[in-house]
Design a protein around this nucleic acid. Sequence first.
DNA 1: TCTGGGGTCCTAGGACCC
DNA 2: TCTGGGGTCCTAGGACCC
Length: 397
Amino acid sequence: MRDPSWSCHLLHVDMDAFYASVMVRDRPDLDDVPVIVGGGYRGVVLSANYLARGSGVRSGMPMTRARRACPAAVVVPPDYDTFSTVSSSVIETFRRITPTVEVVSLDEAFLDVSGTARRLGSPLQIAEYLRARVHDEQRITCSVGVAASVSIAKLASRRAKPDGVLVVPPGEVTTFVHPLDVGELWGVGEKTAGQLHRLGLHTVGDVAHTPLRTLQRAVGQALGRQLHDLAWGTDRSTIAARDASVFGGDPDKSMGAQETFGRDTDDREVVLREMLRLAARVSNRMRVAGVAGRTVTITVRFADFTTVTRSRTLPEATDVTREIHQTATRLYDALGLQRARVRLVGVRVEGLVPRASVQRQLVLGEREHGWADADRAVDRAALRFGSSAVRPASLLP
DNA sequence: TCTGGGGTCCTAGGACCC
DNA sequence: TCTGGGGTCCTAGGACCC
Protein backbone atom coordinates (compact mmCIF):
# COMPACT_ATOMS: atom_id res chain seq x y z
CA MET A 1 0.00 0.00 0.00
CA ARG A 2 1.17 3.46 -0.86
CA ASP A 3 2.47 5.51 2.08
CA PRO A 4 -0.10 8.32 2.52
CA SER A 5 2.59 10.78 3.60
CA TRP A 6 3.72 11.04 -0.04
CA SER A 7 0.92 13.58 -0.56
CA CYS A 8 2.43 15.80 2.15
CA HIS A 9 5.53 17.95 1.90
CA LEU A 10 5.63 19.85 5.20
CA LEU A 11 7.02 18.71 8.53
CA HIS A 12 6.40 20.62 11.74
CA VAL A 13 8.94 19.64 14.35
CA ASP A 14 8.31 20.53 17.97
CA MET A 15 10.70 19.61 20.75
CA ASP A 16 8.99 17.88 23.68
CA ALA A 17 9.05 20.02 26.84
CA PHE A 18 12.20 21.58 25.42
CA TYR A 19 13.57 23.62 28.32
CA ALA A 20 12.76 20.94 30.85
CA SER A 21 14.25 18.18 28.68
CA VAL A 22 17.47 20.12 28.20
CA MET A 23 17.79 20.96 31.89
CA VAL A 24 17.38 17.36 33.04
CA ARG A 25 19.25 15.42 30.39
CA ASP A 26 22.59 15.72 32.21
CA ARG A 27 21.04 15.15 35.61
CA PRO A 28 20.22 11.49 36.17
CA ASP A 29 19.04 12.41 39.66
CA LEU A 30 16.04 14.14 38.04
CA ASP A 31 15.06 11.20 35.86
CA ASP A 32 11.91 10.19 37.69
CA VAL A 33 11.14 13.51 39.30
CA PRO A 34 8.64 16.21 38.29
CA VAL A 35 10.67 19.16 37.06
CA ILE A 36 9.64 22.77 36.50
CA VAL A 37 11.82 25.29 34.68
CA GLY A 38 11.15 28.76 35.92
CA GLY A 39 11.32 30.28 39.31
CA GLY A 40 12.43 33.61 40.41
CA TYR A 41 10.19 35.73 42.47
CA ARG A 42 6.81 36.50 40.85
CA GLY A 43 7.60 34.28 37.89
CA VAL A 44 5.73 31.84 35.68
CA VAL A 45 6.42 28.30 34.51
CA LEU A 46 8.57 28.32 31.37
CA SER A 47 8.46 24.58 30.86
CA ALA A 48 7.64 21.44 32.81
CA ASN A 49 8.41 17.80 32.17
CA TYR A 50 5.57 15.35 31.66
CA LEU A 51 5.63 14.14 35.27
CA ALA A 52 4.94 17.69 36.45
CA ARG A 53 2.29 18.14 33.76
CA GLY A 54 0.61 15.06 35.15
CA SER A 55 -0.02 17.07 38.30
CA GLY A 56 -1.63 19.87 36.30
CA VAL A 57 1.40 22.10 35.84
CA ARG A 58 1.27 24.09 32.59
CA SER A 59 3.65 26.57 31.02
CA GLY A 60 2.64 30.14 31.66
CA MET A 61 1.16 29.21 35.01
CA PRO A 62 2.21 31.39 37.98
CA MET A 63 4.95 29.65 39.93
CA THR A 64 2.99 29.94 43.14
CA ARG A 65 0.15 27.95 41.66
CA ALA A 66 2.50 25.44 40.06
CA ARG A 67 4.21 24.72 43.37
CA ARG A 68 0.85 24.21 45.02
CA ALA A 69 -0.24 21.88 42.21
CA CYS A 70 2.96 19.85 42.41
CA PRO A 71 4.80 20.31 45.72
CA ALA A 72 7.19 17.47 44.89
CA ALA A 73 8.52 19.22 41.80
CA VAL A 74 12.13 20.32 41.57
CA VAL A 75 12.35 23.88 40.27
CA VAL A 76 15.38 24.75 38.15
CA PRO A 77 16.23 28.16 36.69
CA PRO A 78 16.47 28.44 32.89
CA ASP A 79 19.84 28.41 31.15
CA TYR A 80 19.26 30.23 27.88
CA ASP A 81 22.81 29.83 26.62
CA THR A 82 22.43 26.08 26.72
CA PHE A 83 18.96 26.27 25.18
CA SER A 84 20.19 28.21 22.19
CA THR A 85 23.25 25.99 21.74
CA VAL A 86 21.10 22.87 21.69
CA SER A 87 18.60 24.61 19.44
CA SER A 88 21.28 25.56 16.90
CA SER A 89 22.54 21.98 16.78
CA VAL A 90 19.04 20.66 16.20
CA ILE A 91 18.47 23.17 13.40
CA GLU A 92 21.75 22.04 11.84
CA THR A 93 20.43 18.49 11.86
CA PHE A 94 17.32 19.72 10.05
CA ARG A 95 19.37 21.54 7.45
CA ARG A 96 21.29 18.39 6.65
CA ILE A 97 17.93 16.96 5.59
CA THR A 98 16.58 19.96 3.65
CA PRO A 99 17.74 23.53 3.07
CA THR A 100 14.17 24.80 3.42
CA VAL A 101 13.84 25.22 7.17
CA GLU A 102 11.64 27.93 8.65
CA VAL A 103 12.63 28.42 12.27
CA VAL A 104 9.71 29.51 14.43
CA SER A 105 11.41 29.62 17.81
CA LEU A 106 14.10 27.86 19.80
CA ASP A 107 12.10 24.65 19.91
CA GLU A 108 10.02 24.68 16.74
CA ALA A 109 10.53 24.63 12.97
CA PHE A 110 8.88 23.81 9.67
CA LEU A 111 10.68 21.76 7.03
CA ASP A 112 9.76 21.50 3.37
CA VAL A 113 10.88 18.06 2.24
CA SER A 114 9.47 18.10 -1.28
CA GLY A 115 13.01 18.25 -2.68
CA THR A 116 14.44 15.48 -0.50
CA ALA A 117 11.60 13.02 -0.39
CA ARG A 118 13.04 10.82 -3.11
CA ARG A 119 16.53 10.66 -1.64
CA LEU A 120 15.56 9.93 1.95
CA GLY A 121 12.26 8.15 1.52
CA SER A 122 8.71 9.25 2.19
CA PRO A 123 7.97 12.26 4.39
CA LEU A 124 6.96 9.85 7.13
CA GLN A 125 10.26 8.01 6.86
CA ILE A 126 12.08 11.35 6.92
CA ALA A 127 10.20 12.33 10.05
CA GLU A 128 11.23 9.13 11.81
CA TYR A 129 14.82 9.48 10.61
CA LEU A 130 14.93 13.06 11.87
CA ARG A 131 13.53 12.08 15.26
CA ALA A 132 16.12 9.35 15.61
CA ARG A 133 18.95 11.71 14.72
CA VAL A 134 17.83 14.35 17.22
CA HIS A 135 17.53 11.72 19.92
CA ASP A 136 20.94 10.22 19.19
CA GLU A 137 22.70 13.56 19.00
CA GLN A 138 20.95 15.51 21.74
CA ARG A 139 19.31 12.88 23.95
CA ILE A 140 16.00 14.72 23.85
CA THR A 141 12.83 13.86 22.00
CA CYS A 142 10.66 15.72 19.54
CA SER A 143 7.33 15.21 17.82
CA VAL A 144 6.57 15.73 14.16
CA GLY A 145 3.40 16.62 12.27
CA VAL A 146 3.32 15.78 8.56
CA ALA A 147 0.81 17.54 6.30
CA ALA A 148 0.35 19.65 3.17
CA SER A 149 -0.27 22.95 4.95
CA VAL A 150 1.37 24.84 7.75
CA SER A 151 -1.42 24.87 10.31
CA ILE A 152 -2.39 21.25 9.79
CA ALA A 153 1.22 20.17 10.26
CA LYS A 154 1.34 22.19 13.44
CA LEU A 155 -1.87 20.74 14.80
CA ALA A 156 -0.63 17.28 13.88
CA SER A 157 2.63 17.64 15.82
CA ARG A 158 0.68 18.68 18.87
CA ARG A 159 -1.51 15.59 18.62
CA ALA A 160 1.60 13.46 18.14
CA LYS A 161 3.12 14.51 21.46
CA PRO A 162 5.08 13.31 23.22
CA ASP A 163 7.72 11.56 21.15
CA GLY A 164 5.54 10.69 18.16
CA VAL A 165 4.62 11.35 14.53
CA LEU A 166 1.25 12.03 12.97
CA VAL A 167 0.53 12.21 9.25
CA VAL A 168 -2.57 14.07 8.08
CA PRO A 169 -2.88 13.74 4.30
CA PRO A 170 -5.03 16.28 2.43
CA GLY A 171 -7.95 13.90 2.09
CA GLU A 172 -8.20 13.51 5.86
CA VAL A 173 -7.87 17.15 6.87
CA THR A 174 -11.51 17.84 7.64
CA THR A 175 -12.05 14.59 9.55
CA PHE A 176 -8.94 15.49 11.54
CA VAL A 177 -9.65 19.15 12.36
CA HIS A 178 -13.41 19.39 12.57
CA PRO A 179 -13.78 17.52 15.88
CA LEU A 180 -11.08 19.67 17.57
CA ASP A 181 -11.99 22.42 20.01
CA VAL A 182 -11.85 25.91 18.50
CA GLY A 183 -9.18 26.78 21.05
CA GLU A 184 -6.74 24.50 19.24
CA LEU A 185 -6.63 26.79 16.21
CA TRP A 186 -3.66 29.07 15.71
CA GLY A 187 -4.76 32.57 16.71
CA VAL A 188 -7.53 31.46 19.05
CA GLY A 189 -6.61 32.13 22.64
CA GLU A 190 -8.72 32.33 25.76
CA LYS A 191 -10.66 35.45 24.77
CA THR A 192 -11.51 34.45 21.23
CA ALA A 193 -12.42 30.92 22.32
CA GLY A 194 -14.84 32.45 24.82
CA GLN A 195 -16.36 34.66 22.14
CA LEU A 196 -16.83 31.74 19.79
CA HIS A 197 -18.30 29.59 22.57
CA ARG A 198 -20.85 32.30 23.29
CA LEU A 199 -21.91 32.07 19.65
CA GLY A 200 -22.44 28.36 20.16
CA LEU A 201 -19.30 27.51 18.20
CA HIS A 202 -17.33 24.88 20.07
CA THR A 203 -15.59 22.72 17.50
CA VAL A 204 -13.59 23.62 14.43
CA GLY A 205 -16.37 22.01 12.42
CA ASP A 206 -18.83 24.52 13.90
CA VAL A 207 -16.56 27.32 12.71
CA ALA A 208 -16.21 25.76 9.27
CA HIS A 209 -19.96 25.78 8.79
CA THR A 210 -20.45 29.36 9.93
CA PRO A 211 -20.78 32.01 7.20
CA LEU A 212 -17.62 34.06 6.80
CA ARG A 213 -19.54 37.30 7.44
CA THR A 214 -20.88 36.07 10.75
CA LEU A 215 -17.41 35.00 11.80
CA GLN A 216 -15.94 38.36 10.85
CA ARG A 217 -18.62 40.28 12.70
CA ALA A 218 -17.77 38.28 15.81
CA VAL A 219 -13.99 38.31 15.83
CA GLY A 220 -12.97 40.92 13.25
CA GLN A 221 -12.11 41.05 9.59
CA ALA A 222 -8.70 39.46 9.58
CA LEU A 223 -9.14 36.83 12.27
CA GLY A 224 -12.51 35.78 10.85
CA ARG A 225 -10.93 35.16 7.48
CA GLN A 226 -8.05 33.29 9.07
CA LEU A 227 -10.28 31.00 11.13
CA HIS A 228 -12.38 30.20 8.11
CA ASP A 229 -9.26 29.18 6.19
CA LEU A 230 -7.85 27.13 9.06
CA ALA A 231 -11.14 25.32 9.57
CA TRP A 232 -10.99 24.08 5.98
CA GLY A 233 -7.23 23.46 6.00
CA THR A 234 -6.80 25.95 3.15
CA ASP A 235 -4.05 27.97 4.78
CA ARG A 236 -0.46 28.57 3.70
CA SER A 237 1.29 25.60 2.15
CA THR A 238 4.70 27.11 1.45
CA ILE A 239 7.41 28.10 3.89
CA ALA A 240 10.32 30.49 3.59
CA ALA A 241 13.78 29.31 4.52
CA ARG A 242 14.67 31.59 7.38
CA ASP A 243 16.17 31.64 10.77
CA ALA A 244 14.92 34.29 13.15
CA SER A 245 18.20 34.57 15.02
CA VAL A 246 20.66 34.71 12.16
CA PHE A 247 21.65 37.35 9.65
CA GLY A 248 19.39 37.10 6.64
CA GLY A 249 16.23 36.57 8.63
CA ASP A 250 13.46 39.15 8.80
CA PRO A 251 14.71 42.35 10.39
CA ASP A 252 13.20 43.23 13.76
CA LYS A 253 10.42 45.81 13.69
CA SER A 254 10.80 46.75 17.31
CA MET A 255 13.05 46.12 20.27
CA GLY A 256 12.08 46.45 23.87
CA ALA A 257 12.74 45.44 27.43
CA GLN A 258 10.52 45.29 30.45
CA GLU A 259 10.87 44.28 34.04
CA THR A 260 8.62 43.37 36.89
CA PHE A 261 9.74 44.84 40.19
CA GLY A 262 10.45 42.49 43.05
CA ARG A 263 7.96 44.60 44.98
CA ASP A 264 5.46 47.10 43.63
CA THR A 265 6.64 50.67 43.97
CA ASP A 266 5.11 54.14 43.99
CA ASP A 267 8.50 55.85 43.92
CA ARG A 268 9.01 57.88 40.73
CA GLU A 269 12.79 57.80 41.14
CA VAL A 270 12.81 54.01 41.33
CA VAL A 271 10.69 53.75 38.19
CA LEU A 272 12.78 56.24 36.23
CA ARG A 273 16.03 54.55 37.25
CA GLU A 274 14.62 51.24 36.02
CA MET A 275 13.60 52.91 32.78
CA LEU A 276 17.15 54.16 32.32
CA ARG A 277 18.46 50.64 32.75
CA LEU A 278 15.92 49.36 30.20
CA ALA A 279 16.63 52.18 27.74
CA ALA A 280 20.36 51.43 27.98
CA ARG A 281 19.76 47.74 27.36
CA VAL A 282 17.49 48.37 24.38
CA SER A 283 19.65 51.02 22.74
CA ASN A 284 22.71 48.82 23.12
CA ARG A 285 20.92 46.01 21.31
CA MET A 286 19.87 48.48 18.62
CA ARG A 287 23.41 49.69 18.06
CA VAL A 288 24.71 46.14 17.90
CA ALA A 289 22.05 45.41 15.27
CA GLY A 290 22.78 48.69 13.47
CA VAL A 291 19.21 50.01 13.65
CA ALA A 292 17.46 53.14 14.91
CA GLY A 293 13.79 53.86 15.57
CA ARG A 294 11.41 56.81 15.81
CA THR A 295 8.66 55.68 18.16
CA VAL A 296 9.31 55.21 21.86
CA THR A 297 6.64 53.32 23.79
CA ILE A 298 6.48 52.80 27.53
CA THR A 299 4.41 50.21 29.30
CA VAL A 300 3.26 50.62 32.89
CA ARG A 301 1.52 47.81 34.73
CA PHE A 302 -0.10 48.57 38.06
CA ALA A 303 -0.53 46.42 41.13
CA ASP A 304 -4.01 45.38 39.99
CA PHE A 305 -2.50 44.21 36.68
CA THR A 306 -4.16 46.89 34.59
CA THR A 307 -1.70 48.02 31.97
CA VAL A 308 -1.32 51.24 30.00
CA THR A 309 0.95 52.16 27.14
CA ARG A 310 2.03 55.61 26.00
CA SER A 311 4.03 56.36 22.91
CA ARG A 312 5.64 59.27 21.17
CA THR A 313 7.04 59.46 17.68
CA LEU A 314 10.19 61.51 17.34
CA PRO A 315 11.05 63.62 14.28
CA GLU A 316 14.17 61.50 13.71
CA ALA A 317 15.05 57.89 14.35
CA THR A 318 17.44 57.43 17.25
CA ASP A 319 19.55 54.79 18.95
CA VAL A 320 20.78 57.12 21.71
CA THR A 321 20.19 55.95 25.28
CA ARG A 322 19.65 59.46 26.59
CA GLU A 323 17.05 60.39 23.98
CA ILE A 324 15.11 57.20 24.56
CA HIS A 325 15.24 57.63 28.29
CA GLN A 326 14.21 61.28 28.15
CA THR A 327 11.25 60.45 25.95
CA ALA A 328 10.26 57.62 28.27
CA THR A 329 10.51 59.94 31.27
CA ARG A 330 8.26 62.54 29.66
CA LEU A 331 5.71 59.88 28.80
CA TYR A 332 5.80 58.56 32.34
CA ASP A 333 5.42 61.99 33.91
CA ALA A 334 2.53 62.79 31.58
CA LEU A 335 0.60 59.95 33.20
CA GLY A 336 0.43 62.15 36.29
CA LEU A 337 0.43 59.23 38.70
CA GLN A 338 -0.23 59.93 42.35
CA ARG A 339 1.06 57.16 44.55
CA ALA A 340 -0.13 54.50 42.12
CA ARG A 341 1.57 51.19 42.83
CA VAL A 342 3.60 50.15 39.81
CA ARG A 343 4.33 46.48 39.19
CA LEU A 344 6.16 46.57 35.87
CA VAL A 345 7.69 49.06 33.47
CA GLY A 346 8.81 48.58 29.91
CA VAL A 347 10.55 50.58 27.21
CA ARG A 348 10.25 49.71 23.52
CA VAL A 349 11.45 51.38 20.33
CA GLU A 350 9.38 50.76 17.19
CA GLY A 351 9.66 51.57 13.52
CA LEU A 352 13.23 50.31 13.27
CA VAL A 353 15.24 51.14 10.16
CA PRO A 354 18.90 50.56 9.30
CA ARG A 355 20.94 53.23 11.01
CA ALA A 356 22.78 53.92 7.77
CA SER A 357 19.49 55.17 6.26
CA VAL A 358 19.01 57.82 8.96
CA GLN A 359 20.09 61.34 8.03
CA ARG A 360 20.72 62.98 11.32
CA GLN A 361 19.87 66.68 11.05
CA LEU A 362 22.94 68.78 11.68
CA VAL A 363 20.91 71.49 13.37
CA LEU A 364 20.10 69.10 16.17
CA GLY A 365 23.77 69.08 16.36
CA GLU A 366 26.69 68.67 18.55
CA ARG A 367 25.14 67.88 21.87
CA GLU A 368 23.23 64.86 20.70
CA HIS A 369 26.24 63.66 18.79
CA GLY A 370 28.14 63.88 22.03
CA TRP A 371 25.68 61.48 23.67
CA ALA A 372 25.84 59.13 20.71
CA ASP A 373 29.63 59.09 21.00
CA ALA A 374 29.31 58.38 24.70
CA ASP A 375 27.01 55.43 23.94
CA ARG A 376 29.54 53.97 21.56
CA ALA A 377 32.29 54.31 24.13
CA VAL A 378 30.08 52.48 26.61
CA ASP A 379 29.43 49.75 24.05
CA ARG A 380 33.16 49.27 23.49
CA ALA A 381 33.89 49.14 27.20
CA ALA A 382 31.05 46.69 27.74
CA LEU A 383 32.46 44.48 25.01
CA ARG A 384 35.87 44.42 26.68
CA PHE A 385 35.03 44.44 30.36
CA GLY A 386 31.47 43.15 30.55
CA SER A 387 28.17 44.96 30.46
CA SER A 388 28.34 45.99 34.11
CA ALA A 389 31.65 47.80 33.65
CA VAL A 390 30.22 51.10 32.49
CA ARG A 391 26.88 52.52 33.47
CA PRO A 392 25.18 55.82 34.13
CA ALA A 393 26.03 57.32 37.51
CA SER A 394 22.45 56.96 38.70
CA LEU A 395 22.66 53.22 38.23
CA LEU A 396 25.70 52.80 40.47
CA PRO A 397 24.96 50.61 43.46
C1' DT B 1 4.32 36.13 46.94
C1' DC B 2 -1.28 34.79 41.55
C1' DT B 3 -0.20 36.20 36.79
C1' DG B 4 7.64 36.79 32.81
C1' DG B 5 9.65 38.70 28.81
C1' DG B 6 10.29 39.01 23.94
C1' DG B 7 7.79 39.98 20.10
C1' DT B 8 3.85 40.60 16.02
C1' DC B 9 -0.47 41.92 14.18
C1' DC B 10 -5.14 43.95 14.26
C1' DT B 11 -8.64 47.47 15.34
C1' DA B 12 -10.41 51.91 15.84
C1' DG B 13 -10.60 56.85 16.10
C1' DG B 14 -8.82 61.28 14.95
C1' DA B 15 -5.80 64.34 12.29
C1' DC B 16 -4.53 65.71 8.00
C1' DC B 17 -4.15 65.76 3.03
C1' DC B 18 -5.76 65.36 -1.68
C1' DT C 1 -22.06 75.43 3.01
C1' DC C 2 -24.90 70.64 4.88
C1' DT C 3 -21.50 67.32 3.04
C1' DG C 4 -17.39 62.56 -0.60
C1' DG C 5 -14.13 59.29 -0.18
C1' DG C 6 -9.52 57.60 0.05
C1' DG C 7 -4.89 57.16 2.03
C1' DT C 8 -1.46 57.71 5.58
C1' DC C 9 0.24 58.71 10.08
C1' DC C 10 -0.20 58.62 14.99
C1' DT C 11 -1.88 56.82 19.34
C1' DA C 12 -3.94 53.34 22.62
C1' DG C 13 -5.47 49.07 23.58
C1' DG C 14 -5.99 44.22 23.03
C1' DA C 15 -5.13 39.52 21.62
C1' DC C 16 -1.99 36.16 20.62
C1' DC C 17 2.34 33.32 20.11
C1' DC C 18 6.61 31.12 21.97
